[in-house]
């Protein structure tokens, strides 16, 4: 739809503008707009320290949204993010309580737990053909149940290891927080996988039409399984980083990441039906969401107002450019 409507105008524009996705451009335009509004509100909004701080906060969401994007590109969705995040954080902290070996294995163990959740999701979606939003809700409930039994219903007492704190808050490169570096590395790996490998092309293919991909001789079920496992692992890794940032895990730490991760991916122009979208858009979406949250908190908006504005903005932006084509 978008190609045909803007074809006339776009024909006269420079090549790099013509090739860009209008959704990604809109998202970046909104970022500029938000920065402008923010700078009217407070001078320090455009200072490098503040922007770097925002980028650091954004990187946690960025890591989680990367996994979500992979799943959404398949035309599926992963609603098990909240407790994958919490399970990753809690299990990493829990492992740290078991001596030096536990400390060394804390981060891999946290990620492993997320991958395990993702594998259950993937088996349900790919092999049992259960709708992804249902099976991921169910595994989310099971993960929550396991964590409640493990922690006894309270926030766990174990604290994050030094390595986790270093990853989330340290500076390996002077001036650039480690969390941002990690997001950049994961993002670069994702771009490579999506655009340069067979796996990535298959993901787009399945998102467009799984039947066609299957008939082309691709083991689509294996690809779906791997994508869900990666999504679970990245959610858990996001949780590990968050635990390092706050130096401990908390019961409902993941709840605040479900809607933002979906919103970031969808606002970045990735079709919720799958098969279309770029990682650049997701980056734009993540930054957009983080800035929006930041401005609302700078304005001292209470939680209630934040939730309302948040939902309204997402629906409004989707109505602008995320609509399904008119049927027939």
């Amino acid at each position: 739809m978008s190609e045909t409507t803007i074809g006339g105008i776009a024909g006269r524009m420079p090549k790099f503008v013509r090739r860009a996705d209008p959704a990604v451009l809109t998202a970046f335009a909104c970022i500029v707009l938000l920065l402008f509004v923010g700078s009217l509100y407070s001078r320090s909004f455009l200072s490098p320290e503040y922007l770097l701080q925002q980028l650091k906060v954004a990187s946690f969401l960025g890591v989680i949204a990367t996994g979500m994007m992979l799943v959404i590109l398949l035309g599926q969705i992963d609603l098990s993010v909240p407790w994958s995040v919490a399970a990753g954080a809690m299990m990493a902290c829990a492992a740290a309580a078991y001596g030096p070996v536990g400390v060394a294995l804390a981060i891999p163990f946290g990620i492993f737990c997320g991958v395990a959740i993702g594998v259950v999701n993937g088996i349900g979606v790919a092999y049992l053909r259960i709708p992804s939003m249902i099976i991921t809700l169910a595994t989310n409930a099971v993960a929550q149940g396991l964590m409640v039994v493990y922690t006894g219903g309270f926030s766990p007492q174990d604290s994050a290891t030094r390595a986790m704190r270093y990853l989330a808050t340290g500076f390996a490169i002077p001036g650039v927080p480690n969390a941002v570096v990690i997001w950049a590395l994961i993002g670069a790996a994702m771009v490579f996988v999506l655009t340069r490998t067979g796996f990535g092309r298959t993901v787009y293919g399945i998102g467009n039409r799984e039947r066609a991909a299957y008939l082309s001789g691709i083991d689509t079920r294996r690809v779906v399984l791997i994508a869900f496992a990666v999504s679970g692992g990245l959610s858990a890794f996001g949780g590990v980083l968050l635990a390092g940032y706050a130096s401990k895990a908390a019961q409902s730490m993941g709840d605040a990441y479900l809607l933002p991760s979906i919103a970031a991916v969808v606002l970045g122009g990735t079709s919720i039906l799958g098969g279309r979208g770029s990682y650049l858009g997701t980056v734009a979406g993540v930054i957009l969401i983080t800035l929006l949250q930041s401005i609302l908190s700078v304005m001292q908006m209470p939680e209630a107002g934040r939730q309302i504005i948040y939902g309204v903005v997402i629906v409004a932006m989707l109505l602008l450019y995320g609509r399904a084509p008119a049927s027939r």
Binding site: I77, I272, Y310, G311, V312, L318, R323, A324, A326
Partner: peptide, 11 residues
């Protein structure tokens, strides 16, 4: 509005 029910109702 022709949006997906799942994203719409989450928002």
């Amino acid at each position: 509005g022709r949006l997906q029910p799942i994203v719409t109702t989450i928002a």
